[in-house]
Design a protein around this nucleic acid. Sequence first.
DNA 1: GCCAGTAGTGTAAACGATTACATTTTATTT
DNA 2: AAATAAAATGTAATCGTTTACACTACTGGC
Lengths: 333, 333
Amino acid sequence: MPDIKDVANAAGVSTATVSRVLAGSTRVKEETRLRVLSAIEQLNYRPNLVARSLRSQKSARIGLVVSDIRNPFFTSISRAVEDAAYEQGYSVLLCNTDENPEKEELYLKVLHDESVAGVIFSPTQQFSARLSSFESQIPIVVIDRAVNASSIDMVLLDNAAAGYELTVHLLQNGYRKLAGLFGNASTTGRERNRGFRQALEEHQLRPWSEQFIPPRIQQGYETTLALLDQPDRPDAIFTSNSLLTAGAFQAIRDRRLKVPDDVALVGFDETTWGALVEPPITLIAQPTEEIGRTATELLFQRIADPSRSPRTVILKGKLIARGSSAPRPSFSA
Amino acid sequence: MPDIKDVANAAGVSTATVSRVLAGSTRVKEETRLRVLSAIEQLNYRPNLVARSLRSQKSARIGLVVSDIRNPFFTSISRAVEDAAYEQGYSVLLCNTDENPEKEELYLKVLHDESVAGVIFSPTQQFSARLSSFESQIPIVVIDRAVNASSIDMVLLDNAAAGYELTVHLLQNGYRKLAGLFGNASTTGRERNRGFRQALEEHQLRPWSEQFIPPRIQQGYETTLALLDQPDRPDAIFTSNSLLTAGAFQAIRDRRLKVPDDVALVGFDETTWGALVEPPITLIAQPTEEIGRTATELLFQRIADPSRSPRTVILKGKLIARGSSAPRPSFSA
DNA sequence: GCCAGTAGTGTAAACGATTACATTTTATTT
DNA sequence: AAATAAAATGTAATCGTTTACACTACTGGC
């Protein structure tokens, strides 16, 4: 591999000049610039980013830290982040934490050691507290989950509003015995629960059941089975993320109940399967593309100006009403 | 941030000794080792990986280059790769190429510039030829798709066998007019087609239809619609990946046809939705966890010993027979 | 008590770029 | 044509490590 010295020799200039050409400095005579450029071409020279990084104390890498890339929400986010990052010449390091605070701490340290320019992070609730100690060392943009460090950039859904809207939708369609399954790893479940409760209160109703459980298909499945096996089962199930939705759907099917006649089902996040199952699932679609892109842009802004005052961008979810919550027969007339 | 000099000063030794302690060298007196360790602890020192990387000409990063992380197959692979990588202290850089050879070339160059220790790559067919020029510079393990560079490590499914098995399954269940939808971006579609054809030939049948199309939901949808709208439509549709399966499923539903009575459907890759739809989809499940892990291990072995003779690991898919290809009534007796 | 061998440590040169500062060349003014 | 300013380039320090080599201080053998 040729290095900058080889280029300098070939072009008959110093390494400083080559570096200036590389940086697009204007203080280089056009003629020399071309000479350098052609030497670069000739030798097929590519600057060593590690060396550049060490000297300039900067890097063109960012970290993306999520609980599990297999969660369709994060899959989609990750794609958006990468697209936005690569447009700016940045690469993306991916980390899965499994909602485990120790892994979160570990990966944040690793990313710091790798000198990433910044991190896009979806932290557990437990980790939120420790966040500020990292935030002073690396620019961080938090996504999906609110943290109460006021100094941090965030991109969030209006979760309470979304939970409210989804619940109102159920109520308007005639469902009354609403059970809610909420993820317990983040504030997101809690916020969606707030909207859920508020909507119920406004209708002078109480939740049929409320459960805060690990956001996993298996948990959604088991919890729903238990709900359905109760003597007086709910007539609608509200799930706060797509993994719980999948588990609930499976449980309902295994109990040979009909959606929505026996029990309605609503959830969050558009997935491939949400529209394919019978009946298709009513849900709040999050603008994942926009979330990922916005988070990346916010991060770049903070990298460029660390003293900039922190922003919180709140995006709206979109209710997609489908068969799984169709109006109850008695209501539809 | 403290650097190695600070540690050396605090411990009253030279930087060389600190470095030796860090490297776990035995040529350090136990007493000094403890002194250094405690200085590291005290100062909360963490070595700068960029500097280390520059000096040692090594790095603990690998690249993962796939067409689109949102393809459930790659989502799952990526998780497995990261788990395996992080166990060895490696980080993972993620790249999406959209089956675009130019992007493939670009990302491979970027990864090279970033001095990754190696790359796990799922290349397009068009790119395969250019692969060897990169392979001489960076260790590469190819996954999912065969390339004919004999010098390269690969982890593949036995695609022809899988295609064969899936087709035989359809034939045994009484389907005769088989249409096949195959991805056109990689050798994988071609191989699965080989198995498809072979099975048909052994039954003295010809494919009802064979299409090589871009591996996208939309393409699967449109192509299937066209198939179904023909005067003499197929009685079974074979799809070579989960995106095509999803498109085909949607098309069948939109035409209000029943699976499998009107038309059976089979495909590849276990997804969340494959088991949730009605009827659930018969498919060949790939051992994604094993593929990702094996590829990562192969890569580490090659990094450790670049002259090692290349290996190809071929894994078997597993047929999961479900409702979408249930025996035809006339056959089931 | 001397020598060879080894264990433990230090010194200083890399790695490949960027960049502050010094210097040379060119242009502008008088 | 000299003086001055501006533009272009070069020199060398620097980023934070690792590591080849040199050195010192022991150890044990004779």
